[in-house]
Design a protein around this nucleic acid. Structure first.
Lengths: 326, 326
DNA sequence: TTGTAGGCGTTATCAT
DNA sequence: ATGATAACGCCTACAA
């Protein structure tokens, strides 16, 4: 390993001088600067970030906590975060929490121990206190809390958009497949959809519970058609579950969207490749990641945040599982 | 921040003693050990990993380089890696390279600068030299090279399995949709399939190029039916592309699998939720990640690797886009 | 069994 | 403009 000493020796100056020209701090004669630069490139010197981090008590590392990268909503999110940070020289330590307090806490601890300078967390609810007194910047992603900055999508609008789309297109017997209500954004989208539906004359609403994962989706779909065979409209908690319902509906010979309309949530890339292509509520996952990263960097640089809570728009993506020409 | 000094003071011993009991190295009287443990928990002391890393010149950090986490094959892979490492106290720094030399190199550099102790890389071909003289353990994942340890799936078998499955089930006009041949595993599966098909009487083979991504998939599907309308069997380079072809085939009124059989590759979780469910060649992504992590840890601990190259089995997953009852 | 002291690679203060 | 040198928090000879 080549250290600053080697460079100093090679350039015939002191380590202090090398440090100065490398960091562009303090003065340095143009010639010594050249000599140092030469030595640096000759020896291929790269500063040891660990030593830097130790001295400055801060690194270029940022922690990202996700529930589960295996859920297709999160890869886009995380790339949004990474791409933004990568361009600015930061690196990402990633942790999948599976929504578990303990795992989250474990990650947070090792994050601190590594002098991480900030955390972006898509945490499950009630784990907030993990982050409260952490003496480093935290941005919540796809989640909100009173006290912490957050970036999230408009779940309220999302739920209403889904409900409205279905009703406008004539569904009368609607089932909301509700995800785990312990997850705030999932709960909110559900509540908004339910409220709008319940306040509408001539619409009959049922609620069915489901997970968000591939594993649970199939059985949920079966249960849906079993319990509510007359259903002519489904609002799913995410696109995975919607896909399973679409599959099962097709299997049972339902005409989609003529007999049964389906709306998913998230707009994962796969939606566009289903047949019929899945109508859904789009969350701007990649952008959410970027914006969260941007906010975090601002906080790290002590720049003021114009808004503590940044709510991004969702949109109804009108594909083939909802009817046309109203 | 509470340091080892604070603990020493609290326990009324020297920092050396604290260090010893914390690390279980050297001797310590049972009573002083108790005193130290008490002080540690009272002060909530957590050793600073950065300082440790600086002194020992190694951290608990491991680098993972992927082409793109947004490709549904990789989330499972990366969770396999992470879960294995997480249990053993290691942490993961992740980097998406998009297959670009430069990005990879950039990540590798910062990895080194952060005293990372090992790298798992799912790199694109020809970037090997990035890793050759890296003076730290490297395991290639989903890739091979002469000199480096590697964990990968049996692409050769995969390609043949796909080809055989289609022929056994009666397809005569087969199109192989080939992914970027610069990616070795993609090229290999293609070559094996092609070879088997070409050596079979009465089978007509065509080759079509495609990307592996969502973006390219749709247009590739259109091109397929445009150029080769008589096709009755498709071997796709991955499940994404297969999904697009399935969709387009359905849209054009093809009966699947009666008129057209389709086989994907990877067995991403979504396959099972398509209609008809997609037959595919399964790569054990999660396991590949685990095994790669295991190998890396062995190398880090200077344990011998029983095999340098670990080839995992693939399997034909017989779902609904291939015919039954032969 | 325990403590002292030096060093890991870097930055920043303070002389010069 | 430049160079010693003391930190940063930890670990490990070595001495006691």
């Amino acid at each position: 390993m080549v250290t600053i000493r080697d460079v100093a020796k090679e350039a015939g100056v002191s380590v202090a001088t090398v440090s100065r020209v490398i960091n562009g701090s303090g003065y340095a004669h143009i010639d010594t600067k050249k000599a140092v630069d030469l030595a640096v490139s000759k020896l291929q010197y790269k500063p040891n970030e660990v030593a830097r981090s130790l001295y400055k008590r801060k690194s270029k590392l940022i922690g990202l906590i996700l529930p589960d990268i295996t859920n297709p909503f999160f890869p886009e999110l995380s790339r949004g975060v990474e791409d933004y940070l990568q361009r600015r020289g930061y690196r990402l330590i990633i942790g999948n929490s599976d929504g578990k307090q303990e795992k989250e806490r474990e990650y947070i601890n090792t994050f601190s121990q590594n002098n991480i300078i900030g955390i972006i967390a898509s945490t499950s609810e009630y784990n907030d206190r993990n982050y409260k007194d952490l003496n480093m910047p935290v941005v919540l992603l796809d989640r909100t809390t009173e006290d912490l900055p957050a970036v999230y999508a408009d779940q309220h609008a999302g739920g209403e958009l889904a409900a409205a789309a279905l009703m406008e297109r004539g569904s009368k017997e609607i089932v909301i497949v509700r995800g785990p209500i312990t997850i705030k954004p999932v709960r909110e989208r559900y509540q908004s959809a339910l409220e709008l539906l319940q306040n509408t004359e001539g619409v009959n609403v049922q609620v069915l519970d489901s997970t968000l994962s591939f594993q649970g989706a199939k059985s949920c779909a079966k249960e849906l058609f079993d319990k509510y065979p007359k259903t002519d409209g489904v609002i799913a908690c995410n696109d995975i579950v919607a896909s399973a319902i679409l599959q099962e509906g097709l299997r049972l010979g339902r005409l989609i969207p003529e007999d049964l309309q389906i709306i998913g949530y998230d707009d994962i890339p796969m939606c566009a490749l289903l047949y019929p292509a899945l109508s859904t509520i789009r969350q701007p996952a990649y952008e959410m990641g970027e914006v969260a990263a941007e906010s975090l960097i601002k906080m790290i640089n002590k720049e003021p945040l114009t808004e503590q809570h940044i709510k991004l728009d969702v949109a109804f993506i009108d594909r083939q599982t909802t009817r046309k020409g109203m």
